[in-house]
């Protein structure tokens, strides 16, 4: 059976944006962005939930009215009783597809259709089969997964729609400790939400002033922006269903149009790259994880790294 042409999905906003900015971002996505799926909600830190809570119903309604498939995201790290209760109520009460980002959500979603997010460790066909048997209908593969593994997994579990993290700073790690709060003289328990001062992350530079990583509350993301563009056609050929764009503090409607234009063969890879550099200036692009290399690296797109040669 031939799979339908791949589409674009928008991942959850990973950063703490103020409520109105967050709402207006999604309103514009609803009205203008060529994405089929949108995942909304807080996945990084349970302390932030109240910032978006007053707006989420309006955002979901606007997205659905625009014809988007809406999913709500679960927390990536669940340790407190309050957090467990939140995930349970999210799954119990949500009329939408839930995107699981930790093992607790996977248990609670057993037997009903759900999505699996990029922070669940699916490195092989066996793990994907476990999730499919429990009701997962889509799985976003971990960003560090190389193409060779992506192709194996997609071919091995044809009943699942697979997604690949294709644009955005890569979520690399999450901790019980909040390095972001600590960098500003606070602890996690008394953080005063200082991560909201850095809507695109707070740069972590080497001692030689070279940007390396970025802090996003308890999460650490890459300094580089993963941009799979020249790789899209190979990924589509191997059966990937959706390309996930992770919101950065830039014009994400413009980003989604670039990816849409590439998928429709309206522009070539070079045009797409130069447009991405203009839309999200000052942040180097990377694709090393996809090529099994250093994640921060940019591997120039040549025929030698096409699907045929790599497998």
């Amino acid at each position: 059976m031939k799979k339908p042409a791949p589409t674009l999905a928008l991942g959850p906003v990973l950063y703490l944006w103020d409520g109105p900015k967050w709402r207006d971002f999604y309103f514009r996505i609803a009205d203008e962005a060529p994405v089929s799926h949108v995942t909304v909600g807080e996945t990084v830190c349970s302390k932030r939930l109240h910032f978006t809570e007053p707006y989420i119903a309006d955002v979901i309604e606007r997205l659905q009215t625009a014809g988007k498939t809406v999913r709500v995201v679960s927390l990536a790290i669940v340790t407190l009783e309050r957090e467990s209760q939140y995930v349970r109520s999210l799954i119990r009460d949500s009329g939408h597809i839930v995107e699981a980002n930790d093992l607790s959500a996977l248990r609670l979603l057993n037997g009903r259709p759900h999505a699996v997010g990029p922070l669940v460790n699916v490195y092989n066909v066996a793990a994907a089969r476990v999730l499919a048997a429990r009701g997962a209908t889509s799985i976003c593969l971990p960003p560090e997964l190389p193409m060779r593994s992506v192709a194996q997994i997609v071919a091995g579990v044809p009943e699942v729609a697979f997604e690949v993290f294709s644009f955005g700073r890569v979520p690399l790690a999450i901790s019980a400790r909040c390095a972001h709060a600590r960098s500003k003289g606070h602890t996690k328990d008394n953080c005063q939400f200082v991560c909201s001062e850095d809507p695109d992350g707070l740069s972590v530079d080497t001692l030689e002033h070279r940007p390396f990583l970025a802090l996003n509350g308890v999460q650490t993301v890459s300094h580089t922006c993963q941009a799979l563009v020249g790789e899209l056609s190979d990924l589509a050929l191997c059966g990937v269903s959706r390309f996930v764009l992770s919101p950065q503090d830039c014009d994400m409607v413009a980003v989604s149009r670039v990816y849409d234009d590439v998928l429709k063969h309206h522009i070539d890879v070079e045009d797409a790259m130069s447009r991405l550099h203009q839309i999200y200036p000052g942040v180097p692009l990377s694709n090393g994880f996809h090529h099994g290399q250093v994640g921060a690296a940019w591997i120039a797109h040549t025929k030698s790294v096409s699907l045929g040669a790599e497998i």
């Binding site: 890569v170 400790r177 994880f289 099994g292």
Partner: peptide, 21 residues
């Protein structure tokens, strides 16, 4: 480990080699 174990790609971001893989 400072980061949640099994959920850290910092090493592969810098070296291509990670604990998980």
């Amino acid at each position: 480990c400072v980061m949640a174990e099994g959920r850290c790609s910092l090493s592969s971001y810098a070296t291509g080699k990670s604990p998980n893989m």
